[in-house]
Design a binder for these strands. Structure first.
Lengths: 122, 122
DNA sequence: ATCCTACGATGGACTTTGTCTAAGTCAAGC
DNA sequence: GCTTGACTTAGACAAAGTCCATCGTAGGAT
């Protein structure tokens, strides 16, 4: 556990946090000016491998990193400002895929992205 | 309707077709050698605007273009080889998001990506 | 205390995907 | 035969991410 890794972990702390790698880097630099982009990417990659952080791709721009890796959830995204909320749909979406629609695949998970407008943008 | 646009439309024809822009370009070049990348991008963008083709982002690499724009569907992706199938889950995933989980958003749609292993890779 | 070693950090080059722009081409209409 | 405008082209550019050679440093060995 180096200073660099501690700083990255500190930046990724809180609820409804969905920062891009660049945003993580910018905030890490504020705490530790000499930290490099490569180190932030490496550390984020390790956190993902350890299962401490989830990668989220709600748009085709940058990956976002979600420290809420402990409770399964989906995402709700504002089409205008990009705000992201963690949400918990009812039911089990995996069960909603009939065998006839599985084409012999071994289905192990599903990602859902709800789209809409947040109260500010609506 | 120019030769270039016709070729792009021809490439995007069939079932379970999910080509990247580069793949579309490669196949278009096979039919019309002088077609440029920019024209393929422009034409794909127009087809998306017209609602004839859907953009699909199942991984964080390239966008894919799905000519099956007429019937709503979701996608099932092999984690290993990247094969993509169109699928039709039962139920209405939009209705599964309780009001208490909407945070005041006006929710208008949802994208689902099922992940698993295809028969070949399993 | 000094030297060695190995791991992690660093910066920069590189890759991929996509967009933009300036210039070129072609057909239709005057 | 020109002009106009839409479409196409090639290449430059941008954003996000990965890769790699080098550098620093902490901890162990002498």
């Amino acid at each position: 556990m180096t200073a660099q890794r501690r700083v990255v972990a500190e930046v990724l702390d809180g609820d409804h946090v969905h920062l891009t790698a660049d945003e993580v880097h910018a905030r890490a630099v504020a705490k530790l000016p000499e930290i490099s982009r490569a180190t932030v990417y490496n550390t984020l990659g390790e956190l993902v491998t350890l299962g401490e952080v989830l990668e989220v791709s709600t748009d085709r721009r940058a990956k976002r990193y979600d420290p809420n890796a402990h409770r399964p959830h989906q995402h709700l995204v504002c089409a205008k400002c990009g705000a992201i909320r963690d949400v918990h749909p009812a039911g089990n979406p995996l069960a909603d895929l009939p065998d006839s629609e599985r084409f012999g695949f071994t289905v192990s998970g599903v990602e859902m992205t709800y789209r809409g407008l947040c109260p500010n943008c609506a």
